[in-house]
Computed example of a mutant assay.
Amino acid sequence: MNLQHDLERERIYWLHKQPAPVSAVERMALDWLGRSGMEGKALRVGERAPGFRLPDQSGALVSLESRLALGPVVLLFFRGHWCPFCSLTLRSYQKAAPRFAALRSPLLAISPQGAVANGESSQRLGTSFPLLSDVGSHVNRAYGLAYDLPAGLRALFEGEYATPLPEINSDGGWTLPLPATYVIGQDGMVLYAHVDVDFRRRQDPEELLAWLGARYADVGARGSL
């Protein structure tokens, strides 16, 4: 599976499927996010990653600290099960999960949606790694990724998308994260960061696996990171 190919195919599909006014609002929203400077405010390489303890899709609490005990954590921030680009990304990482495990790099994914929605996502996509619920977007904000949808996009979600985001997120709010991918070292420092205001662009797991493989060629000899 080539994630970039699938993302581009999905982008073209929606470009042709959506009415022109809807596409225009999305373009304005992306322009607005670009002008906001949010990418520059997100957590960067060399900074300490905020810790967290969140429920996964089964309700069990998972902490960043507990996963870092296993190795450098690959941390994915996604918008929700309603986002086809998020689903493609999670499915792609699931297919690559055994290879991340071989590098002792556990996968975690965080979204603002509730545990029920994450459970539906996990069942539909067959994910074996935790999908964590950041209800209220506290972790998203700590990583500098959270933003509140402008009125134009809220109208799209309520009408054209038929996606009741405040219900899905279980907090009554209209907050989403910028999609992002981080690698957190065992010392809690950010080793790798990919953040993009365009929700249609994501970090390819193949590129990340190559980066991890080059950095930690001798997995057995690796100590604390």
Rank of each mutant, 00 (worst) to 15 (best):
L145E: 06
V62M: 02
E10M: 15
Q113R: 07
L3N: 15
S128M: 08
E206H: 12
P164Q: 06
G136Y: 13
F100N: 00
I184E: 00
Y147H: 13
E120P: 12
V190R: 00
K41P: 06
Y143A: 13
D31K: 01
R202K: 08
E65I: 13
P130H: 03
S66W: 01
G185Q: 03
G144K: 10
A69H: 07
A210S: 10
A217R: 15
G34S: 05
G172R: 02
P164K: 01
S36P: 12
L225V: 15
S224R: 15
D198P: 14
L33C: 01
Y143D: 12
W211I: 03
P166D: 09
D218A: 15
R27A: 14
P84Q: 02
A142R: 07
D148S: 14
E158S: 11
F199Y: 05
V197F: 14
T175L: 10
V25F: 08
S23E: 12
R202T: 07
R67K: 15
A115L: 14
E47H: 04
S63H: 11
D56Y: 08
L90A: 03
F85V: 02
L3F: 12
S36W: 12
A155R: 15
D198F: 00
S128E: 13
Q94R: 03
M189I: 15
L125T: 12
L176K: 05
G46C: 09
M28Y: 13
L125N: 02
D31G: 14
M1I: 11
G159P: 09
L88A: 00
N118Y: 07
L125A: 02
V116P: 06
L61G: 10
S137D: 13
L165W: 04
A146T: 00
L43F: 06
V45A: 13
Y93G: 00
Y192S: 03
S23P: 02
S224F: 15
A97V: 05
K17T: 14
A115D: 02
L176V: 10
P179Q: 07
F52V: 08
A109Y: 07
F157E: 01
R91W: 11
L212M: 04
L125E: 08
L153Y: 03
A155N: 15
L30N: 03
V22D: 04
Y13F: 15
A193E: 04
A49V: 09
P84E: 05
S170W: 03
A97L: 09
L156V: 12
P205M: 06
V197D: 07
H194Q: 01
L107P: 02
L131S: 10
P177W: 00
N169C: 06
S111C: 10
W32D: 13
V135Y: 05
G80A: 05
A101Y: 06
P166T: 09
L54C: 06
E65V: 08
P84N: 02
P205C: 12
S111T: 14
N169I: 01
L90E: 01
P177L: 01
Y161D: 01
L107F: 04
S23I: 14
V116D: 12
M28N: 06
V74H: 10
V139G: 06
R79N: 01
L3Y: 11
S111P: 00
E39Y: 09
S105L: 00
L131C: 04
R44F: 04
L43I: 11
E120H: 04
S36D: 05
L61H: 13
V197A: 04
G223P: 09
D198C: 07
L70C: 14
